[in-house]
């Protein structure tokens, strides 16, 4: 049951999915992998929307070159752990939810522990090796993974539902070569917002998810495009019948 303050805080979105939908958001525990460009947008919108428990993980400290896009952090945070700065921003925007911000490097060794109790995974990473770890953990736990990635004016997003859709390794069987990528804050805004919209839809049961569809944003030409994808029967991650 929502409190009067919660009814007021979330009144504009209660018009979309009712008090029941809002209660579902408040009962949802979210894992956000990364507090960088995508993680900033994702975590701020999820906190503001009232996802009840947010666990955000990042091992880095804030650098001056992050501030063009990583809107969780401010000038005064340069040199501080991103997780600490994230905690302050998120509890500042919504003190009524539970925020856990951890300074950790996500690895094969700790991913199980990090994901404990989480219902959904938000991909805000900057590399594919860790994304593949998130993908495998999502498959094992049978919880959704909301994928997003950006570079410059470009981005992509898809929603992975274990047992139902193609997994990340079906769509991207191998990681692209590692490189320093150009980054524009507004591209993180577009893709991160799409990921949060997907999570809201998933939790409240509204609309049509980006299932088996890879969405592309080309900001330079102002175009959205999509490609259909399907489970790969030879996928190294999800084809063994377990998922």
């Amino acid at each position: 049951m929502l409190s009067d303050a919660e009814k007021k805080r979330y009144s504009r979105q209660i018009r979309l999915f009712g008090e029941d939908g809002q209660e579902r958001l408040l009962r949802t525990s979210v894992f956000i992998a990364g507090a960088g460009g995508l993680g900033s947008v994702i975590s701020l919108y999820m906190a503001a929307a009232g996802f009840g428990k947010i666990r955000i993980v990042d091992c880095d400290t804030v650098e001056l070159s992050n501030l063009n896009r990583q809107i969780l952090h401010g000038n005064a945070d340069v040199g501080r752990a991103k997780a600490k700065s994230a905690y302050e921003s998120l509890t500042g925007i919504n003190p009524e939810i539970e925020v856990e911000a951890l300074v950790e490097t996500i690895s094969e060794e700790n991913i199980d522990q990090l994901l404990q109790g989480c219902d959904i995974i938000m991909d805000a990473m900057d590399n594919f090796p860790v994304r593949y770890l998130l993908n495998r953990a999502a498959l094992q736990r049978k919880i959704p993974l909301f994928h997003g990635a950006i570079s410059g004016y470009q981005g992509q997003a898809t929603t992975i539902i274990p047992g139902k859709t193609a997994c990340l390794a079906c769509i991207f069987p191998r990681a692209p070569p590692a490189s320093v990528f150009p980054a524009l804050g507004s591209t993180c805004g577009v893709i991160g917002s799409i990921q949060v919209t997907e999570a809201v839809k998933y939790v409240t049961g509204a609309g049509k998810l980006l299932e088996n569809r890879l969405l592309f944003w080309d900001g330079l030409n102002g175009c959205l495009d999509e490609m259909a994808c399907e489970r790969n029967s030879a996928c190294r991650e999800c084809s063994d019948g377990e998922y």
Binding site: D126, A149, Q156, P176, F181
Partner: peptide, 8 residues
Amino acid sequence: IVRFVHGG
């Protein structure tokens, strides 16, 4: 053919 991205 689309170039996919990996940043975050």
